[in-house]
Design a protein around this nucleic acid. Structure first.
Lengths: 238, 238
DNA sequence: TTAAATTACTTGTAAATACAAGTTGAATAA
DNA sequence: TTATTCAACTTGTATTTACAAGTAATTTAA
């Protein structure tokens, strides 16, 4: 029997458990139901349950102890900046507001920050945008995002104001982040950054150049993020 | 039948395949033997092989394609600084030389950089060391490492000159890095850093404060790393 | 009362089996 | 020759079964 969208069972169980953890149904230190209980609830066998749990362990949501059970660690903090998707999940959405500096528009690539581009990417052009992120009202992130203009209908007309770019890509285009590479360096704020961050001259700024892989083969997202780490240090778990 | 040290089969297979990749037996783009071939070679069944391969995928050594096979991606670059162990594997040992500024010595904790310490850690004191790392002769990393002084016989008398701290911990004390958390920020070089890095005043420096988890419960390694990113940006994969 | 043993859980490992689904190259038919 | 079909691979998913090993509470014996 094929499921409606043929999403594997272990993935479904993973999504459900993950949403329960992120949604607060389980808090830090709570015990997840035992594997056998999960089996009966989701009507699958133990290897399937274990595959779902394996992923939760890998992503840092839970730890397992032989003889005890699966203990919830909570939502991995800082997964955002340093290891996965956007800036949104790094801080917690409550305190983060976004100002669009340059709305998504189609441009030619201005060379995507030290990362070499493929011919297809160069020919297609890119969707370019600049955003300023404020944490508790203070400007902390300034980011430039470049996405190849390949098979993304109506992209530039979508509303980004209160959405995560990555949620949007996932929802409308089934593009999911798989991993990526990044370069980090410390620089001194230039005129533009001094203006955005409202800091004086000589102010140190953290710069991240990122190339993000997706589930679409050959489809990469490039972003350059500048951070004022005066009050909010970048946090990452690994 | 119990194996000599009762190391799981899937872990053994993982170690073997991993060493083949890191050792250069398989290069980038090469196909690993098929799962069934690996089964016959290692005398285990497919689920066991798949568990070993799963881990290699998670750690970025290989990618798998249905119908094609398991393709070697190579040794994950930059795993060092941003996601795992030391600085050594970040650059490649060839170009990296280490100068010990303060040899490992037992001290009281000077509060391990914003990370709260447990009572046991505070009571045990810490092994403290400072090292300067040079890449191609230029000072790039300055790091302070603090290790709780718990059950580490003869640690301060070991020779660190040309060894990775983490290799040593693994080899002699069976301590392996499991993960950790880190905070990143951009600062301006103080007098000490200006001296070490031979840079002028106002020079931006990247600072990492890290708390590293190990396979010993409650045993954490704390380190603070300062990087001059002028010539060598920190590189990380995720 | 106290300490040891048992029992009933939990997760960890491993095999054997089956079929689905993607890829590739060889055999076949036009 | 060219296009199509097919067979032989590959990995992906899932079940069933079995036992090992760690944990914790209960029961039992001292």
């Amino acid at each position: 029997m094929v499921n409606e969208t043929s999403i594997p069972q272990h993935r479904k169980v993973y999504e459900i458990l993950r949403s329960h953890i992120t949604g607060g149904a389980y808090g830090e230190g709570d015990l997840l139901p035992s594997e056998n209980e999960l089996c009966t609830v989701h009507k699958v066998t133990r290897p399937t349950i274990r595959k779902a749990l394996d992923r939760l362990v890998n992503e840092g949501y839970i730890v397992r102890h032989q003889g005890k059970g699966s203990i919830v660690k909570g939502v991995p903090k800082g997964v955002g900046i340093l290891s996965m998707t956007g800036t949104t999940s790094a801080i917690g959405e409550d305190n983060l507001t976004t100002t669009i500096i340059i709305k998504p528009e189609i441009r030619n690539w201005s060379e995507a920050f030290t990362f070499p581009l493929s011919r297809l990417e160069l020919e297609s052009g890119c969707i370019y945008m600049e955003r300023l992120r404020l944490v508790n009202g203070k400007p902390v992130f300034y980011d430039i995002t470049m996405i190849p203009n390949i098979n993304l209908p109506r992209f530039t007309s979508r509303n980004f104001e209160n959405k995560s770019l990555f949620d949007l890509l996932r929802k409308y285009y089934h593009i999911e982040v798989r991993g990526g590479e990044q370069k980090l360096l410390a620089i001194v704020a230039d005129e533009r950054l001094k203006d955005f961050f409202k800091v004086g001259s000589g102010h140190p700024v953290l710069q991240l150049n990122r190339k993000i892989e997706t589930n679409r083969a050959g489809f990469y997202i490039y972003s350059q993020v500048f951070c004022n780490t005066d009050e909010y240090a970048l946090y990452g778990a690994f």
